[in-house]
Each structure stands twice: as C-alpha cells, then as structure tokens.
C-alpha cells in the first residue's frame, strides 16, 4: 500500500469523524413542548415575544437576569429566564431564537438571537423633513 492510500484513508476517517461530531454535537430547533419533554437537552426555540405581558429587567437587583414571555411557533407560551442583560431594542424584535433548556415552568436561556427586520430591510418611506 502506498503512502498516498494511507493518507487517503486517514483523510476519509477524519472527515467522517467531523461529520459525526457535528451531527451529535449540534443542538436542534424545537418548540416548547418538545423542549419540556427533555429538560436536560439543549434546544433552540424560535418564537415571538408576547408583547401583552410584562418583561422584567431590574439591573439593580440582578444585571444578568431578564424575564419575558415568548410564544413559540406552535403557539405555546412560556416564561423565559435569560441569564444575561436585557438586549438592546428588545421590544422591537420580530422574531426571537432562545438557546437553553426547559427547566420546570420556565425556559432557562443562556443566549438569545433576535431578528429585527427593521435593522435590515424594514422601515417605510415617510415624511421626515419638515
């Protein structure tokens, strides 16, 4: 067997390893129902902020605690506890992705991604000069 063959086999082995690792390592998108079935697994949940309910951020008590209510894409609402500061312009978010685990009656999120369409393509022409 030539060296090139050995290298080739090694190459394929590493590639398969990389694919397997990616598939097993990666968390998946889910809704609240699926996430609450497996409280020990990490999920990405996509949804919208419930603007009717109160969001609580009291930096004087805890600068790394922010709670709000989110409705997932299946229509289920849940309280979300984010262990970070309140994101800029949170109320304007159109879509939210929270990353974390479902613990008890709340979703404990380590991280949050927000899509504010306004930032990229929203905003309509209006009279701005007087």
């Amino acid at each position: 067997m030539k060296k090139i063959h050995i290298i080739g086999i090694l190459l394929i082995a590493v590639s398969i390893g990389a694919i397997m690792a990616s598939l097993s390592n990666s968390s998946t998108y889910a809704n609240f129902r699926e996430a609450s079935v497996h409280p020990d697994l990490e999920y990405h949940v996509v949804g919208k902020l419930n603007k009717e309910k109160e969001t609580v951020y009291d930096p004087k008590a805890d600068a790394n605690l922010f709670t709000f209510y989110m409705v997932d894409n299946g229509g289920i609402e849940k309280k979300v506890v984010l262990h970070k500061s309140k994101p800029q312009d949170f109320e304007r978010s159109e879509q939210i992705v929270i990353i974390g685990k479902c613990r008890g009656d709340a979703f404990q999120a380590d991280d949050i991604l927000m899509k504010c369409p306004s930032k990229y393509n929203d905003g309509k022409p209006s009279e701005t000069k007087i």
Binding site: H83, K84, R103, D110
Partner: peptide, 21 residues
C-alpha cells in the same frame, strides 16, 4: 464579573455572569 449572585442554580446554567451594574 458579578459575584453578588445567590442563585446557584442559575449560576450553573449560565455560561457567565459578565454584566455588572
């Protein structure tokens, strides 16, 4: 680093409490 936190459960969950008032 925010060390004033008492909620140990939350501390375990979050990957860092890096905001300070």
């Amino acid at each position: 680093h925010n060390n004033s936190d008492k909620d140990i459960e939350a501390l375990k969950l979050s990957n860092g409490r890096n905001n300070i008032l």
